[in-house]
Write a protein that binds this DNA or RNA. Structure first.
Lengths: 246, 246
DNA sequence: CGCTATTTTGAGCCGCGTCAATACGGGTGG
DNA sequence: CCACCCGTATTGACGCGGCTCAAAATAGCG
């Protein structure tokens, strides 16, 4: 809307998968260089979103899937009683909107937790390209399959300690792959969202974090955490420390 | 192994998607007739499995996805402490093994709950065909996306009553689509598996079923159930009565 | 410096799990 | 046909993990 004439051009330049540092963990992962250039032709960049702005909402028509470019997004559903249910937190290189393919409309909403931007992949163009580029087709299959595994983890039956330790380890691995510290990072999301995501109460998050700190597993100050004992956290997480979640 | 020479030929004939009554809710759903015939060329039929026999096990190499042809299958994972976690029950027309695409090996095991058979779709042939048949590619995207929604439901935070009512309604809708009664059916799986799937204790299943019966919602006798008050069950299920689960 | 949202901490309680005993049913062999 | 056995299901007693309710502490912000 209020963009200058140069703006789209600059975005275009900045927005090439070919030159994107996230490409090794996003859609272009493993694709041949020539194939990535084909992707560049259909990827669109929107304006950055500020914290609290929605990327899409439940029941919106499904037109595209999104790849997080910067910032952190939260996806969630609101059930018939109005209760929010957080489905995931999405870091740069991760995808949003995959569950909308089948019903052809969005089932969940996606909102920016801080300032962030996404790449838009128009679905019809993406499927057409995937039919011509076998590597891309396989990659989309893989990404969809990976998403299933994420939800399987979430659906598993675990104690509060296991869930929270697994959550911290998951964030740790994901930050590490993105070039950030695996042991010191900031929890972008409020306690309330962590609790909701892990199907626990906010108070339980506070208490378990306090206990982890007391036991020397972590150092936590508001939203800044430092993981002091990764092995201890892994033992606490039990079966929830699967690296593939990153 | 011990098949006669005629056996494979007979299987081949019986096994055509083109003539399969399940095709409207399986992989061929919505495909053009010519495309379904292409599918016929790659679909393989294995011998029937008896109750307790495994279709695949966790860590098996991933070669194919499977479509249930008859019977009921259970998929589950076993965590590092040896605890079983049921991921789903799979009726005719439903798929198995989708979560194995990304890691290229099976993450869960699949076992027959009663005598049943599956169609085998070799993955490399399936992807090659999907690249040539746009409708098939879209259909696989849809099926993967649908699987995500199933696990989202499972991961949601619900009471024992909601979970069990939602489970009964899900079975009801799935049986109905397959031409069976939506109100009278047999629970193929033992209480223990239902409990594990719903992340509850076996005793809780018994108690809640007994209470549902006392409240006139259902009539239950061992594994035979009759749903007496569908609306009451829907109200009990709360947000877990989404038909798309079928 | 007050206002508000977030986080922490405490007290009490409840749903569901655990443990244990009993009932049921289907198969097997005499 | 019955006696026996064993896996499945039911029922009861009890305890605990995590939720609810309430209030205080802390941080961010105009």
């Amino acid at each position: 809307m209020s963009q200058t004439l140069e703006q789209p051009h600059l975005d275009q330049l900045r927005n090439l998968c070919s030159t994107c540092s996230l490409s090794r963990l996003c859609v272009p992962m493993g694709l041949a260089e020539a194939d990535v250039e084909q992707l560049d032709n259909i990827v669109q960049q929107g304006r950055p979103l500020r914290a609290g702005e929605h990327l899409f909402r439940a029941d919106d028509p499904f037109n595209a899937i999104y790849a997080v470019r910067s910032g952190c997004f939260k996806s969630y559903i609101v059930d018939s009683e109005g209760h929010e249910q957080v489905l995931g937190f999405h870091l740069p290189g991760e995808l949003l909107g995959l569950d909308a393919i089948y019903p052809e409309h969005h089932r969940c909403s996606a909102v920016a937790l801080d300032t962030g931007s996404v790449c838009t992949l128009p679905y019809s163009q993406l499927t057409q390209l995937a039919a011509r580029v076998p590597g891309l087709q396989s990659q989309i299959f893989r990404l969809l399959s990976k998403d299933i595994s994420n939800y399987v983890e979430l659906a598993a039956d675990h104690t509060a300690d296991e869930r929270l330790a697994g959550f911290l380890l998951s964030l740790s691995a994901r930050f590490r792959r993105r070039g950030y510290s695996a042991t010191r990072f900031r929890l972008i999301m409020p306690r309330r969202d962590i609790a909701n995501y892990l199907r626990l109460a906010t108070e339980t998050i506070s208490r378990v974090l306090a206990r982890f700190q007391h036991n020397g597993l972590i150092q936590v100050e508001r939203r800044d955490v430092e993981l002091l004992d990764l092995d201890g956290l892994r033992r606490t997480a039990g079966s929830l420390h699967i690296e593939s979640l990153s």
